[in-house]
Nucleic acid binder design. Structure first.
Lengths: 247, 247
DNA sequence: GATAATATTTGACCAATGGTCAAAATGTGA
DNA sequence: TCACATTTTGACCATTGGTCAAATATTATC
């Protein structure tokens, strides 16, 4: 060992790499089978370690699943951050975050399903304290990015002041987004609603909330197609793939 | 046995009564502990029957939980139906359904949590065919009641035609409602958003979507406080308890 | 390179629990 | 009262999340 001050030793690097490997495989299993339909033995086989080794990384199956969710949530916050730097009107920037949300949903398709499990108290309390904290932290990042933008929009007068608090408006945006993603994944609802592309349904609902808030310029008063082109070009080039599609 | 033509025999009545007893206790356990933190043995003890008897009613734990969800969903559809008969403008009627939704959430607090479990494929496929069908049926009832109202509102010109399809609008309303209920139950979000009364947050978000859809009369153009008084008096007298509260 | 000391990995094992079924208990009719 | 049918039961099984002593690998020392 030649390095005098290795901040991270080789062992630690290997440990982290293995943890990522486990999380990646667990994510795949979650996407393919949900929570119940696979067991730790199978996961151990997939990553070519034994069950005991898994438990050196995660205190329980729930702890592992929370780690998967938090890894995704960190990605989400990163994408929100990137989108929030988009240059434009406040409503154009919230629009960019809306795009980020869809990009994320496509890149981590298991996320919303896993996040719903976490709502169960018994699930949450089986995870370790550190991981619960890490998850809250990433969740708070997402919240803050949106809320800051809403606060700014109100300061600029883009959202009428006095009607709703910034926190209420932020809550509305998040609630409609989560609800749209969850419902859009439901085959039964998709058929009933005639939805071909769930992401466009999410985007539409976000627009409805913004219009409802009176966030200027309203959908009818601005050429948002031009905004979308810029968002595509500057922030999410991959979004073109899902953007041009049926309702 | 004196009755000549009993459509339902005494045995069958007893069987149904016991099924309801089991469902009621299972609902309580779900509310108190979620899904994992109780077992069939404990439930059997609570209803004072043995495990084997439970399995004469339900093919699996998942099947039982689906039955709980469907029983709640039936209540939900019933309340929607009641609310949809409210006499008034189309937007006043969707408002009455919004009230129904909150009344329901208070009366079946376990519902949204259980409903989220059903999204997991492995869960759904462990339940019996009949119960899956019954659940879809009640879900479709809820959908239809809202969608009919939206169609009618568009026919009346209360919602501008041509912009969104009735199905899209229905989807928006349901998505925002589900999302708001789920997020409103999350302590972390409640604190961040400064929400005292989750039901009012749900109602607000529904109003935002309606305004966003341009559903006339808009919030600012009508005395909806008067509408609310009528809804309270005519349809949901109990709603007064949760309506008068902080944001 | 040999050996001792330390760290890591393993899989047999345990406890909990969803689900089954032969036997016991209960109900019914003659 | 007895024979037959139906219902209820709980011992039993298989699966699986989680543990830990033993085996294996790594590192340090001479």
């Amino acid at each position: 060992m030649s390095d005098v001050l290795p901040v991270i030793t080789r062992k630690e690097r290997e440990f982290q790499a293995r943890e990522e490997l486990i999380i990646t495989h667990a994510r795949r299993l979650l996407l393919e089978k949900g929570f119940q339909a696979w067991n730790m033995e199978q996961l151990a086989e997939a990553v070519e370690y034994s069950k005991g080794t898994l438990y050196q990384h995660f205190s329980s199956k729930e702890d592992l699943v929370l780690a998967v969710a938090t890894a995704s949530l960190r990605q989400r916050a990163d994408m929100f951050e990137k989108a929030s730097h988009f240059q434009g009107l406040s409503r154009e920037r919230i629009r960019a975050i809306g795009f980020a949300c869809c990009e994320f949903a496509l890149s981590c398709p298991e996320y919303f399903h896993v996040e719903m499990m976490l709502k169960s108290a018994s699930f949450w309390e089986k995870a370790s304290e550190e991981r619960r904290h890490a998850h809250s932290f990433q969740g708070a990042r997402c919240w803050r990015i949106i809320n800051n933008l809403v606060v700014e929009a109100m300061a600029l007068g883009d959202i009428p002041r006095g009607q709703y608090s910034p926190e209420q408006a932020t809550f509305s945006l998040i609630a409609v987004t989560v609800g749209s993603h969850l419902m859009g994944r439901e085959p039964q609802f998709r058929v009933q609603a005639g939805i071909q592309n769930p992401m466009l349904a999410v985007r539409l609902n976000q627009d409805l909330i913004c219009d409802g808030l009176g966030w200027k310029p309203l959908l009818k008063d601005h050429d948002y197609a031009a905004t979308d082109s810029r968002i595509l070009a500057e922030v999410f080039p991959n979004a073109a793939a899902w953007l041009n599609a049926d309702p």
